[in-house]
């Protein structure tokens, strides 16, 4: 088993934190993991992205040729990274900010109204954790509890956001289960 996920959006959407939380959750589960944030020229224009690879074997390259999954938090990210996704892959679209759907027919789309769901649990700012909840809910790469544990580990020192983030992860996963 090896899964590569690219998270992309603009700076301030907590894109790197999504990857960071997933990576921590995977490590605590005992998986091998690499977390590779884009930096430097890659980050110009206020965009951010990172790639997380999970595997039960040694991970050769932290750089992905084709991610299996894309989590697109804004429209420019969808446009930029959609072509890189592996045929048969999965694209999570932040439907609160992205009206269009992926153009490709060889990938599946999961639309999540992340900002709205985040607001339900307390704050727009938790949209990233809603998306992460949806990601683990849909793919099963981590159990929801494992994602929450990863979040707790990744946000050490910022415990005051724990309840909000936990609720957001659970809300995202519930949305996948229940379809709303």
């Amino acid at each position: 088993m090896m899964v590569r996920t690219t998270f992309a959006g603009f700076g301030g959407q907590g894109v790197l934190l999504m990857g960071y939380v997933l990576a921590h959750g995977a490590m605590l589960k005992g998986l091998n993991v690499t977390y590779l944030p884009a930096y430097g020229a890659e980050m110009r224009g206020g965009t951010a992205n990172c790639t997380v690879t999970l595997s039960d074997e040694e991970i050769a390259s932290p750089v992905a040729s084709q991610p299996d999954i894309l989590v697109a938090m804004n429209a420019p990210s969808l446009e930029r990274f959609e072509p890189t996704v592996k045929p048969g892959g999965l694209i999570f679209v932040n439907a609160s900010l992205i009206e269009v759907s992926p153009q490709r027919s060889d990938v599946s789309e999961v639309r999540v109204d992340a900002v709205k769901l985040a607001r339900e649990v307390g704050s727009d700012r938790a949209a990233n954790m809603v998306m992460l909840g949806a990601l683990v809910g849909k793919t099963g790469m981590l159990e929801v509890e494992e994602a929450v544990r990863g979040m707790a580990e990744a946000t050490k020192g910022k415990e005051k956001f724990f309840d909000l983030n936990k609720a957001a992860i659970e809300r995202g996963a519930a949305f996948i289960c229940e379809g709303r």
């Binding site: 990576a23 977390y35 430097g40």
Partner: peptide
């Protein structure tokens, strides 16, 4: 290099 410095692994 920067990739090695920024990358996270257990």
């Amino acid at each position: 290099d920067g990739l090695m410095g920024q990358m996270m692994e257990p």
